[in-house]
Amino acid sequence: KKYKVVEVKENKDGTVELVVENENGEKKKITLSKEELDKLKAGDTVELK
């Protein structure tokens, strides 16, 4: 499934919390490390299994 990044929030521990949404409007929260996030920004599309 493809999800669009709608919100990006940095946590104090250096991880980043993303809120992503698919075309049905379903939202998910995922947490990434700073390194994983470096290639993402709001409006990008991510694929989740």
Score class of each variant (00 low, 15 high):
1 K>L: 12
1 K>T: 10
1 K>E: 12
1 K>A: 07
1 K>R: 09
2 K>D: 03
2 K>W: 07
3 Y>G: 01
3 Y>H: 02
3 Y>E: 01
3 Y>S: 01
4 K>P: 01
4 K>S: 04
4 K>G: 02
4 K>F: 11
4 K>W: 09
5 V>I: 10
5 V>G: 00
5 V>F: 02
5 V>N: 00
6 V>F: 05
6 V>M: 10
6 V>R: 03
6 V>G: 01
6 V>Y: 04
6 V>K: 04
7 E>K: 12
7 E>H: 06
7 E>F: 08
7 E>C: 15
8 V>H: 03
8 V>R: 06
8 V>I: 13
8 V>K: 05
9 K>H: 10
10 E>G: 04
10 E>N: 09
10 E>M: 10
11 N>P: 03
11 N>Q: 09
11 N>T: 09
11 N>G: 07
12 K>P: 13
12 K>N: 13
12 K>G: 11
12 K>I: 11
13 D>M: 02
13 D>P: 01
13 D>N: 12
14 G>F: 02
14 G>K: 02
14 G>T: 02
14 G>Q: 01
14 G>S: 03
15 T>R: 07
15 T>A: 04
15 T>K: 05
15 T>N: 05
15 T>W: 11
16 V>F: 13
16 V>E: 00
16 V>K: 07
17 E>T: 09
17 E>D: 13
17 E>M: 12
17 E>C: 15
18 L>K: 00
18 L>Q: 00
18 L>P: 00
18 L>R: 00
19 V>Y: 07
19 V>I: 09
20 V>E: 00
20 V>Y: 14
20 V>A: 05
20 V>T: 01
20 V>S: 00
20 V>W: 03
21 E>K: 05
21 E>W: 06
21 E>P: 00
21 E>D: 02
21 E>Q: 08
21 E>A: 09
21 E>M: 08
21 E>S: 06
22 N>G: 14
22 N>W: 09
22 N>S: 12
22 N>K: 05
22 N>L: 06
22 N>P: 01
22 N>A: 13
22 N>V: 05
23 E>H: 07
23 E>F: 05
23 E>R: 04
24 N>W: 12
24 N>R: 11
24 N>V: 08
25 G>N: 05
25 G>M: 03
25 G>W: 01
25 G>H: 10
25 G>R: 04
25 G>L: 03
25 G>T: 01
26 E>H: 09
26 E>C: 14
26 E>Q: 08
26 E>G: 06
26 E>R: 04
26 E>P: 00
27 K>E: 04
27 K>H: 12
27 K>N: 06
27 K>I: 11
28 K>D: 04
28 K>C: 15
28 K>S: 11
28 K>L: 14
28 K>V: 12
28 K>I: 14
29 K>A: 11
29 K>C: 14
29 K>Y: 13
29 K>L: 10
30 I>L: 12
30 I>C: 06
30 I>T: 01
30 I>G: 01
31 T>K: 12
31 T>F: 07
31 T>V: 11
31 T>W: 11
31 T>L: 07
31 T>S: 10
31 T>A: 04
32 L>Q: 02
32 L>I: 14
33 S>G: 13
33 S>T: 08
33 S>W: 14
33 S>Q: 14
34 K>Q: 08
34 K>M: 12
34 K>F: 13
34 K>G: 14
34 K>H: 14
35 E>M: 10
35 E>R: 09
35 E>Y: 11
35 E>I: 13
35 E>C: 14
35 E>V: 13
35 E>Q: 10
35 E>A: 14
35 E>S: 13
36 E>P: 12
36 E>M: 12
36 E>Y: 15
37 L>W: 11
37 L>R: 14
37 L>K: 15
37 L>F: 10
38 D>P: 15
38 D>S: 10
38 D>Q: 08
38 D>E: 09
38 D>L: 08
38 D>K: 09
38 D>V: 10
39 K>I: 10
39 K>M: 07
39 K>D: 15
39 K>F: 12
39 K>Y: 12
39 K>Q: 12
39 K>N: 15
40 L>Q: 01
40 L>S: 05
40 L>R: 02
40 L>C: 10
40 L>D: 01
40 L>Y: 15
41 K>A: 06
41 K>Q: 08
41 K>F: 04
42 A>D: 11
42 A>S: 07
42 A>L: 13
42 A>Q: 06
42 A>P: 15
43 G>M: 05
43 G>H: 02
44 D>Q: 03
44 D>K: 02
44 D>I: 03
44 D>Y: 02
44 D>L: 03
44 D>H: 03
44 D>W: 01
44 D>R: 01
45 T>R: 03
45 T>A: 04
45 T>H: 12
45 T>E: 14
45 T>C: 15
46 V>G: 11
46 V>D: 14
46 V>N: 06
46 V>R: 00
46 V>Q: 02
46 V>H: 03
46 V>W: 04
47 E>L: 05
47 E>C: 15
47 E>W: 08
48 L>Y: 02
48 L>I: 13
48 L>Q: 03
48 L>C: 15
48 L>S: 01
48 L>G: 01
48 L>N: 02
48 L>F: 11
49 K>N: 15
49 K>E: 15
49 K>G: 15
49 K>I: 15
49 K>M: 15
